[in-house]
């Protein structure tokens, strides 16, 4: 089974740490956490992820700006991005991933079962 690389960009170290712990302990994923939004592009270029989990609200740079930079990069622009946000209610996403304005969203706090389903479905092959 191939290991998928997931880049988690979130300003909360506890979130990136726990996501890494959960996904890697279950097998099949290699996770890199990045807590500084401004370093996201460099981290993505270096790590070459198969999917990026990106927090929307971060203090130094918003998730939308980070996404714009990632998509402008020729090496990263095809990498799927799933946004993680606290300001979308679970009802709006119906507990699952949701598409808002053409973007994929998962509402925080994320359920690991749902996250795994989303990763399986959208991770680049």
């Amino acid at each position: 089974m191939t290991t998928k690389r997931i880049l988690v960009i979130d300003d909360e170290p506890s979130v990136t740490r726990n996501l890494k712990l959960n996904l890697e302990s279950g097998g099949g994923y290699e996770v890199l956490g990045e807590n500084r939004a401004r370093n996201a592009l460099a981290a993505a270029r270096k790590f070459q992820p198969d999917l990026i989990l990106l927090d929307v609200m971060m203090p130094d740079l918003g998730g939308d700006d980070v996404a714009a930079r990632l998509r402008a990069d020729p090496l990263i622009h095809n990498t799927p991005i799933v946004f993680l946000t606290a300001i979308v209610s679970n009802k709006e996403t119906d507990g699952h991933e949701a598409t808002i304005g053409g973007e994929l969203f998962l509402a925080k706090p994320v359920d690991m079962g749902e996250l795994r389903k989303t990763l399986e479905q959208h991770t680049r092959n």
Partner: peptide, 26 residues
Amino acid sequence: LAAGVAHEVKNPLMTLSLGADYFLAR
């Protein structure tokens, strides 16, 4: 207020939730 509260409360909640998920998976 809602957006602020959501951001400040849901991130710690996510940490707790992921922790619980980790233990349940083990």
